[in-house]
Simulated scan of single mutants.
Amino acid sequence: MLIGKLRDGRVVAVKRLYENNCKRVEQFMNEIDILTRLHHPNLVTLYGCTSRHSRELLLVYEFIPNGTVADHLHGGDSRRGSPSWNTRMKIAIETANALAYLHASDVIHRDVKTNNILLDNNFCVKVADFGLSRLFPTHLTHVSTAPQGTPGYVDPEYHECYQLTDKSDVYSFGVVLVELISSLPAVDICRHRHEINLSNMAINKIQSNALHELVDSNIGFDTDDKIRSMITAMAELAFQCLQNDGDMRPSMQEVVEALLRIQRMNKTGETDKGHPDDDDAGLSKNNTSLVSPDSVTAKWSSSSTTPNGST
């Protein structure tokens, strides 16, 4: 990625296509097609591009100066206890909002990961990289296609059945949620072989009531009761997103609603479950409320299998 400046003073990021083969050109054209029809405050803005017949293929985006979520959680910009829990909560909500908007616009991102979630200087989210994204006509239940994506984030059902749905993004977002509470990368070959994939580790820790072994100890889990409750609720939501069966996962809009309820716990100290003015406090499709880890384990362990993390 190159950095430049337009004549009007705007700083831009320039994505250059180095391999001019059919697959790369297809991704180049796909990204243009997707981003020229979508406009959302949490999606990166495409300013322009070269012609597909140009000697070099270039995409010109707004420049997002603060790196990626991955950089801040476990990369070169990571620092102990940073970002704060409230910032991580904000990142989760804004990313979920962007994905819900994509799904409402009949687009599946297909490569949701913390390396594709950019941050500005105020830690506002800009979801990027739409080269693998697919338009998803509303009359179809799925798109049959060879699985693509990044190891550690690929929906195991998609990998097994070659059927892409919006729930594939939900699975990948579940991995992002676990990264936000653990500060661990989605894949790490230095971990125990059953925990190389973060999704496997998260499922195992939650089912064994050992969430404290997963959570980053520097973000307030052990020192702040409200943060502890919010992290526990986010882990429960991630658990639902990581179900092997896509039909058991919430939609992205339901994920947004659940995250907003979790955020409100910072003010109330408890979820909105049972509040007389909030009839949809649970995830409506599965009639699932935010409950304790023991309840989650009891509900899911008999009907779900541990994601195998295949790519």
Rank of each mutant, 00 (worst) to 15 (best):
G9V: 14
R10S: 08
V11Q: 10
V11F: 06
V11I: 12
V12T: 11
A13T: 12
A13D: 00
A13P: 06
V14G: 05
V14R: 07
V14Y: 00
V14I: 15
V14C: 07
V14P: 05
K15G: 01
R16C: 05
L17H: 09
L17T: 15
Y18Q: 12
Y18F: 03
E19Y: 12
E19S: 10
N21D: 15
C22E: 11
C22F: 05
K23S: 10
R24M: 09
E26L: 05
F28W: 10
M29G: 00
N30D: 01
N30T: 15
N30Q: 13
I34H: 01
I34E: 00
I34S: 03
I34K: 07
L35G: 04
R37D: 09
L38W: 04
H40A: 02
H40D: 12
P41I: 04
N42Q: 07
L43C: 03
T45K: 15
T45C: 07
L46D: 08
T50M: 11
T50C: 10
S51W: 01
R52S: 15
R52Q: 12
H53Q: 09
S54E: 07
E56N: 09
L57K: 14
V60E: 09
Y61D: 01
Y61R: 07
E62F: 14
F63L: 15
I64D: 02
I64V: 15
P65V: 05
P65T: 06
N66I: 13
N66Y: 12
T68V: 08
A70V: 11
D71L: 06
H72W: 13
H72C: 11
G75Y: 01
S78W: 15
R79N: 09
R80A: 10
G81T: 05
P83L: 03
P83D: 07
W85N: 07
W85G: 05
W85I: 14
T87A: 08
R88V: 03
A92I: 03
A92L: 04
T95M: 08
A96K: 04
A96I: 10
A96H: 04
A96S: 14
A96V: 08
N97C: 12
A98I: 00
L99A: 04
Y101W: 06
L102E: 00
L102G: 00
A104T: 00
S105W: 01
S105M: 11
V107Q: 02
V107W: 03
I108K: 04
R110F: 02
D111Y: 01
V112E: 07
K113G: 02
T114Y: 01
T114K: 05
T114V: 03
T114W: 01
N115C: 11
N115W: 02
N115Y: 04
N116H: 15
I117S: 02
I117C: 09
I117Y: 02
L119R: 06
N121R: 12
N122Y: 13
F123M: 11
F123E: 02
C124I: 14
K126C: 03
K126A: 02
A128P: 00
A128L: 08
